[in-house]
Design a protein around this nucleic acid. Structure first.
Length: 197
DNA sequence: CTTGCGATTCTA
DNA sequence: AGAATCGCAAGG
């Protein structure tokens, strides 16, 4: 399968978010490549979206990457301990992104498992397998991503996403975004999209 | 410079 | 329900 193109990322954020479902995220590491299927995403649609870091035109050192070219990684630290991975969408000057909120590990299971729990995959409990990457902080832990990967171009060779057949609309669930109660009118937008758990 | 807090996770 | 934990953004 082929790497997603700049044109793919340079579309309306909602479209990018929905179309990312089912695609495979790849992080190339020394030992090979970590591959996970994207299953849960949220759209953050820029200056008019109160939940988005660029709301109101906010342009700071942290949010600078959002303002640039589509198809770059926006990774930031939250609560002093967790990293969030976002994919920048839309054209330059339109600071939008898609948060990756959950993935399903494909391979190698042992490396992903060690990243998360310091244990081999066959040693995990059912609960640990269920929870291995079903949250945005867990996604970064599982794929060993941190602030050093902020700004990476997903058209490069280190972190990228490969194409897959589109998911039928009927299988795409939508809901309110998580933990943005402060966002007033924007907190009720149905900008979360996910595949059946 | 100070301060309040967040697109979370884990434990109890 | 509460703790962990710190960079960021806003305000003085």
């Amino acid at each position: 399968m082929k790497k997603l193109t700049r044109d793919f990322y340079n579309q309306d954020t909602i479209l990018v978010a929905k179309q990312l479902l089912g695609k495979t995220l790849i992080h190339v590491i020394d030992e090979g490549e970590i591959r996970c299927k994207i299953t849960d995403v949220e759209a953050y649609t820029g200056v008019n979206d109160r939940a988005c870091h660029s709301f109101g035109g906010r342009r700071t050192n942290r949010t600078e990457i959002l303002w640039g070219e589509a198809g770059h990684a926006y990774i930031y630290l939250i609560y002093g301990m967790y990293y969030m991975l976002n994919i920048v969408a839309e054209n330059e000057g339109s600071p939008c992104a898609v948060l990756l909120r959950g993935v399903a590990p494909e391979s190698p299971l042992d490396i992903i498992s060690i990243n998360r729990y310091q244990k081999l995959y066959h040693q995990l409990t059912k609960r640990q397998i269920t929870d291995i990457a079903n949250g945005p902080g867990k996604v970064c832990k599982a794929l060993n991503l941190n602030k050093s990967h902020n700004g990476l171009d997903l058209l490069g060779g280190e972190l990228y996403i490969i194409d897959a057949p589109p998911i039928d609309e009927a299988f795409i669930h939508s809901g309110k975004r998580i933990n943005i109660d402060y966002a007033e009118e924007a907190k009720d937008y149905l900008y979360r999209f996910y595949l059946q758990q």
